[in-house]
Design a binder for these strands. Structure first.
Length: 224
DNA sequence: TGCCAGGCCGGGT
DNA sequence: ACCCGGCATGGC
């Protein structure tokens, strides 16, 4: 198999070694936990600054109402939508954000997720970012996990884990952190998928906000 | 009990 | 170009 690294050899090999150690410890994570691409997109918006267990309840409400498709959700009353997604928190804000995405999907792609992702080129990310309520992490999550595009997803865990290992600064911007991966790994959506999920996994269990360093963490051997 | 969770927006400096 | 308050539920 070909190397997963590119660009600067040092950094690329280090990132690959991290990935291998994490995969060795935890195995494949099976992300994203959604039955359809549309459900993945809904989940990506609902999980903003929110634990996944809360999102599952909200998704469950939508599924119980057979509303987990673009047509039904687009037609749904805003107040009813916010009531159904209440368990996900920020429900008024997120109901509006879901509506914003659906308005965009119907006005530009006739409500078709396939058409959204079939259009090739770089334009899709910019279009998603233009939707009010979709920022860089949500856009990249949608592109990677719903669209299969090789966009590396950066989140709070990514920052914490990799700044503790000195690979990024503690206050680096989203695009700076993303570049670390995009410029040093081959663009492989399968690897990006697992890598992000593994970062979340190790971050949850071994890299907590207050505790200065991880102990018994699979990445402990890489600390200097 | 307080802190954290798979962020983002809008207004202010 | 940053900085900050607001948004809100559920788990530990």
């Amino acid at each position: 198999m070909t190397s997963r690294t590119r660009g600067g050899r040092e950094t690329g090999e280090r990132l690959t070694a991290f990935y291998d150690a994490l995969f060795e410890s935890f195995g494949p994570q099976g992300w994203w936990p959604g039955r359809t691409r549309f459900e993945v997109i809904v989940g990506a918006i609902l999980t903003q600054n929110t634990s996944w267990s809360n999102v599952e309840r909200a998704i469950g409400n939508l599924r119980a109402g057979r509303l987990l498709n673009p047509e039904k959700l687009h037609a749904l009353d805003l107040k009813e939508l916010s009531g159904l997604i209440r368990p996900a928190g920020y429900f008024n804000v997120k109901a509006g954000r879901l509506k914003n995405f659906l308005d965009f999907l119907f006005s530009k792609y006739g409500g078709s997720i396939s058409r959204l992702f079939n259009k090739k080129g770089e334009g899709t990310r910019g279009e998603l970012l233009a939707v009010v309520g979709i920022g860089p992490e949500t856009a990249d999550s949608i592109l990677l996990y719903a669209g299969g595009r090789p966009e590396f997803v950066v989140d709070a865990y990514t920052r914490r884990v990799f700044s503790r290992h000195g690979l990024v600064g503690p206050v680096a911007s989203y695009d700076e952190v993303k570049s670390l991966f995009m410029e040093n790994l081959e663009p492989d959506s399968k690897v990006f998928n697992e890598y992000h999920a593994l970062i979340v996994r190790v971050g949850k269990h071994y890299c907590k906000p207050r505790e200065p360093m991880c102990s018994r963490c699979p990445l402990e051997e890489f600390l200097s």
